[in-house]
Design a protein around this nucleic acid. Structure first.
Lengths: 153, 153
DNA sequence: TGCGCCATGTCAGAAGTCTGACATAGAGTC
DNA sequence: GACTCTATGTCAGACTTCTGACATGGCGCA
């Protein structure tokens, strides 16, 4: 194949990208049989844990733009998985909720995704896992630090 | 905004996604003024560290499909940043290299991206950084473990 | 030699996401 | 009240990436 002279794999940034990419690939693999994408699943999981989130809040939680989430929400609403009754409108904000069908759909997906996360953490002690959480939170905070706040997504 | 009853932020998977997303956003922010996307930069950086990589190898290194990398490579070749001389062909494999212009283009981008990574790691000791590398490598290995190998990307 | 098998390069179309833009609603200020 | 500022929902178009497909080249094995 190719010469492995320089080792790119010592960069935390690259490893972070690699890990996130591997996680995403495995999630896609288990979600595909259910006819679901990762963002699709993320949206449902967010709504299950925090009912009534708005389009923009869902977008932030799934790390996409509110425009992308809007496209997805309209499809989910059309499929009867999510409902956004106009009566619930508060100002311009239109809260979304899972339908019964959405909850059923999420149940299988949630189990599948959880098994992927379990596999990812296999071989790590409880201390290592909380260490990983702490380090990731530190990186997130540092990256967001000198931020003007008005950024998409 | 919304009620913060259930805390989604305790999942390592979610934090991983959040950190990768934040890193990508910051990289996009510093690369945009240079007229470069993240994948664009990744491709150049890979070629700088390992000259002669093929299209498929670059794709794996940048975590995209070989089809996506092919689209990008054709654009980069057209822009004179990368060259793939047909004389270098080995079987079906066509090794790619940076042109002088590509090296210049990468120089600025590389510095910008490195500063983002430094900022991300701010406040972490050397031990914590190597701990982060170890944990991320562990997650990657576990995720790839029960893998048939033939997956895109 | 001939065969199956796998990886590669490439094209074409589909799907997902993003950028840009507009109108509107709420909060704060004068 | 009038104003500005910010956040939101939404539409339209462009871009990036993916999936599917095909032909080709190297490799191992009968």
């Amino acid at each position: 194949m190719a010469q492995d002279g320089v080792d790119l794999e010592t960069s935390v940034g690259y490893l972070l990208k690699e890990a996130a990419s591997a996680l995403r690939a495995e999630m896609e693999a288990v979600l595909r049989p259910l006819g679901m994408t990762v963002t699709h699943y993320s949206c449902l999981e967010l709504l299950a844990q925090r009912p009534g989130l708005s389009n923009s809040e869902l977008a932030r939680g799934a790390f996409v733009t509110r425009q992308s989430m809007n496209v997805l929400l309209q499809a989910l609403e059309r499929d009867g998985v999510v409902s956004r009754p106009v009566e619930g409108r508060v100002g311009k904000v239109l809260p979304a909720r899972l339908t019964e069908r959405g909850r059923r759909s999420l149940a299988q997906a949630s189990a599948a995704v959880r098994s992927v996360e379990v596999r990812m953490l296999f071989g790590m002690t409880e201390e290592e896992q909380s260490g990983a959480r702490r380090l990731l939170r530190s990186m997130i905070a540092s990256l967001r630090e000198a931020d003007d706040g008005g950024r998409q997504p």
